[in-house]
Design a protein around this nucleic acid. Sequence first.
DNA 1: CTCAAATTAGAGTGTACAATCAAAATTGAA
DNA 2: TTCAATTTTGATTGTACACTCTAATTTGAG
Lengths: 181, 181
Amino acid sequence: MARYQVGIRTEGRILEAARELLGELGLDGTTLKAICELAGVRVGSFYNLFDSKETVVLRVVAEAIAAVDPDPAHLGTETLDDLVEAYIAFFTKDPVVARIYVQIAVSGALNNGELHHRILRHHEQRADRFRAAMQRDNPALAAGEASDRTEILLATLNGLAFRAALDSEFEFARHARAVTS
Amino acid sequence: MARYQVGIRTEGRILEAARELLGELGLDGTTLKAICELAGVRVGSFYNLFDSKETVVLRVVAEAIAAVDPDPAHLGTETLDDLVEAYIAFFTKDPVVARIYVQIAVSGALNNGELHHRILRHHEQRADRFRAAMQRDNPALAAGEASDRTEILLATLNGLAFRAALDSEFEFARHARAVTS
DNA sequence: CTCAAATTAGAGTGTACAATCAAAATTGAA
DNA sequence: TTCAATTTTGATTGTACACTCTAATTTGAG
């Protein structure tokens, strides 16, 4: 299990290559072969470090989401606005990766049970943070009501993101901010 | 171009087979071979009637959408509630086909220019109908304001549908109706 | 320096899939 | 009945792809 430095560096190059290609060509356009070529690695080396193409894609997406987290340490101090802005940042900074997230969620959910659970859990964790922030902002809010409002807020944000994926001219950020005010 | 009866019947059988398999197995699970087998047709016959697999899938989705249209004749009498209920009906009646629509929209948009335009146009047409109904309900509403509200309403509905695709337990209809009231 | 463990190479496997094509069969209008 | 147009057949093609396997090489702890 003790990693060698060279292996860790190779892993980094593969992740970097995957990040670049996914952001440029999307999920379907990014082949394993292309990732390996850009990373300067043979296919066998890839599979020594990653279980599958899916693994590396999920890593890239997860890191993109983590990169805009307003409260990485989970101190519980974030406001609802912080969370909404983080959401906007994720979809604005790298729309192609954001679309890949949606793509995986939609197509993977029926076919791949394990992936389905990961994505559902991710949604629930995000919903929990939104709900908690909402109740910090407004302590009088009943739990069920906060829960319902959270689902609707998240649905609207997801829907706006979907809309922005369809048309790059769409003013995603303006509409998203309009929802919370 | 004059069609023979037998060809029209074959086309019907292929569409029926595609509808059944897509609703049961989803987009990826439905192969051309399986469609042909269920329809009792050889692959060559399929390609005599349809240009591609994509063509038949889009036909199935389009017909599912048309089936719940509250105003198929375009009389312009539908209310906003009618439209929302039609949206709910589409996603409730055949969730797998509904998910396929989302799947095509998300994955097809970047890769396939023609498909992208079709989906964007479909969204815009729907948005127009929502906006018109909204202004019939409330004639005092300014055009820009109605436009913005429409985008947000549609985004919320799309997001809720996406959420429902992730978790079949999710009370899609209840949340959707809560948005308009 | 040694050597077991980690890493790399790269040819090879499998395979599921959409789509093509030319020839045979059938349809149905006139 | 005729026959051109339509439909059917099914073997075939192409091919893009993720992933495997074994042997050679490199690493770095002791």
